[in-house]
Amino acid sequence: MTESTAAAVVLNNVSKRFGSKQVLHEVSFSVPRGEALCVLGRSGTGKSVTLRLMIGLIKPDAGDIFISGNHISCLEGKELSRARCKIGFLFQSAALFDSYTLYDNLALPLRRLTAKSNSEIEEIVDRGLKQVGLAGDKHKLPGALSGGMRKRAGLARALVLEPDVLLVDEPSSGLDRITASEIDDLLLEQKALHQTTMVIVTHDVHGARRVGDRFAVLDQGRLIALGKPEELEDHESETVRKLVTEN
């Protein structure tokens, strides 16, 4: 079995440039099934770009990306859509459809991509919202929710198709420590119950240490460290040590 099929996520020498700025430079790592990898780094080092490349929202200039065995960087159109069905994505802003209720936000992919009946969809959506503690808010519009509730709703939507891989962009951004911790609890629960592979981009070392099995540290578009948090605490690079240490 090749690395691209054994691991849930594989990046091979991925590079990306926007204009004159080299955002990612030959980044390679893989994430075994069921593992949570936290990507750390200073602002503007290409963390979110890495996630966008992994879901196929942008294409790499060079290198290959495999998610659940699909060569994402080469797929287009319907093939890419099919591959994305196995990937959940939680946006930093949650990116809920603001003209849809929470119920419709979660029901949309089920209506479009599955042959499930309305009652089945209702059952799945109710279960998803209950899992994130929003069972009583399904008829609310996103504008009526707090930041933490929106993030939880975004997570419920990302999980509604039961993805193999969950990509999370800044789960704690804009949230207080307690609310951020609740999101971390949900991610941990998802990992424990469904063995979902996760790639989490974050600045929150405390949350990353709770959820992540390994850390990947990016600096100026390059992967400068990859390993378990405790292994990286004594890393030769001061940037790595600062990023993986809580205080």
Partner: peptide, 14 residues
């Protein structure tokens, strides 16, 4: 701007 178009794409909807 609010990434909702990206979210639609990510959900495999054109």
């Amino acid at each position: 701007v609010t990434e909702q178009i990206d979210a639609i794409e990510v959900l495999s909807v054109d």
